[in-house]
Amino acid sequence: MNERPSPAASRLAAGATPAVSARGLTKRFGELVAVDGIDLEVPRGMIFAILGPNGAGKTTLMRMLATLAEPDTGEASIMGHDLVGEPDEVRGAIAMTGQFASLDEDLTGRENLVLLARLWGFRGRAARERADALLHEFDLAEAATRQVKAYSGGMRRRLDIAASLVVTPSVLFLDEPTTGLDPKARQGVWRMIRGLAEAGVTILLTTQYLEEADQLASRIAVIDHGRKIAEGTSRELKAATGSGFLHVTLGDPGQMHEVTRRLERMLRSQVQQSPEGGIVSTPVASAVEASEVVAALVAAGVDVSGFSMGSPSLEEVFFALTGEMGEADDTQGGDRT
């Protein structure tokens, strides 16, 4: 095991080449353009989130960056190595934990890790020691000799991530790392991801959970229908949709459509209706604009029983950008995979 520069030092050296750099990446499957001209630049040592609904193209984008799918057009490099020209160098620098556990279910946790350690070039005892160290780090030592098929979802995910760290990658791709996990296991994975980032690993993760992107990532790219529709820090994305959301509670829910039309005319922005509570919500540029809007509604005879203004949640940002609610996607049957 050699010394690597400390995280701080690698951050200083980050000026050279970004960890991930992509220009115009495109992938088609027949008629479907799964990824449509995406540009991406991820500096070294950062946690970067790709946020989007099911079928937005997140997984395809990730698979291209991990050398598992070849882009139709566009180019990309990982740690300065060209994705298409130097796939082996890229593979030496990355690790990927896919959406579905990439483990051998019949083997024990320890055997899975020893197998990978040997493939990386650890021999005999060194491979076993590397496996045991990982099992210890990921709190799986007690389950080491059990077959993976007997593991819980959380344990499986931990082992899957451990399997990506047999050799510490420069860039770690995590495709929906917490999908299907209970809240406790999700917190565990988040802690693990933060720990890896502290150790200097660049992390590119996809998620359909706005909260996850908000909690973990320094930068977020929002993609929908294969295109990147926004990118920035969580704060920047929120600011880009205006200072906040105005929520108006109507005394007479029957006025909802009329109020929606009125607001759309006044603000030229999308209006979201929540018929259950008789609430309409819309992004506004400022508190002053919000008060003017409410005054105008009252003057027009709308029965306003209450109103409030909040800084937009990432969910509202997502709504404003895509015209649909992120996590509500499933219930709308909006799976476009």
């Binding site: 030496g92 070039g121 047999v166 050799v167 510490t168 565990g188 720990g195």
Partner: peptide, 12 residues
């Protein structure tokens, strides 16, 4: 990291 898990950097 927060959980007390130590991530050790390992070279290839």
């Amino acid at each position: 990291n927060g959980s007390g898990v130590a991530i050790t950097r390992v070279e290839r």
